[in-house]
Simulated assay, not measured.
Amino acid sequence: MTPPLTLSLVTLGVADVARATAFYEALGLTRAAASSDAVSFFNTGGPVLALYGRDALAEDARVSAAGSGFPGVTLAWNLGSPAEVDEAMIRCAAAGGALVKPACKAFWGGYSGYIADLDGHLWEIAHNPGFPVDAAGRLRAPEKPEG
Rank of each mutant, 00 (worst) to 15 (best):
S68A: 15
L49K: 10
W108K: 13
D37V: 08
S40E: 06
V10W: 03
G96L: 02
L7N: 09
A58Q: 06
N128R: 13
A95M: 07
G80E: 14
A33W: 07
L122I: 14
G120P: 00
E124T: 09
S36F: 03
P129M: 08
P4H: 12
V85E: 11
N128H: 15
S40W: 09
F41S: 08
P129V: 11
F70Q: 10
E124L: 06
T6R: 04
A141M: 07
A33E: 15
F131M: 15
G69E: 13
G53K: 04
A136R: 12
A66T: 11
V73W: 14
A18R: 15
K105Y: 04
T30V: 13
A22T: 06
G28D: 06
F23S: 08
E84C: 01
L5Y: 10
A18I: 02
A20E: 01
F70H: 11
H127E: 05
A88Y: 13
Y114W: 07
A58K: 04
T74N: 15
D37H: 14
R19N: 07
S36I: 13
P3L: 12
E124S: 08
L75E: 02
L139W: 11
Y52F: 12
G45H: 12
G96Q: 15
A106K: 11
G67I: 02
A18H: 12
A116K: 10
K144D: 08
A50H: 00
T44L: 01
K101E: 15
A20R: 05
F23H: 06
S112V: 06
D37S: 12
R91S: 14
G46L: 03
E84Y: 03
Y24I: 00
R140L: 04
P145I: 02
C104G: 12
A116H: 06
G147T: 01
G45T: 11
L51H: 09
T6C: 08
L49F: 00
P3Y: 06
L51D: 08
V14P: 01
G67K: 12
A18Q: 11
L51A: 12
L51Q: 03
N43H: 12
W77H: 07
R62F: 02
A22N: 13
L27P: 02
L29F: 13
A126M: 12
R62T: 14
G46V: 02
C92R: 12
A50W: 01
D55Y: 07
W108G: 05
V17Y: 00
T30N: 11
R62C: 11
V73Q: 10
A38P: 00
A106W: 10
F41Q: 09
A15Q: 14
N128L: 01
D37R: 14
G53T: 05
A38K: 15
E124P: 01
G96D: 09
A66V: 03
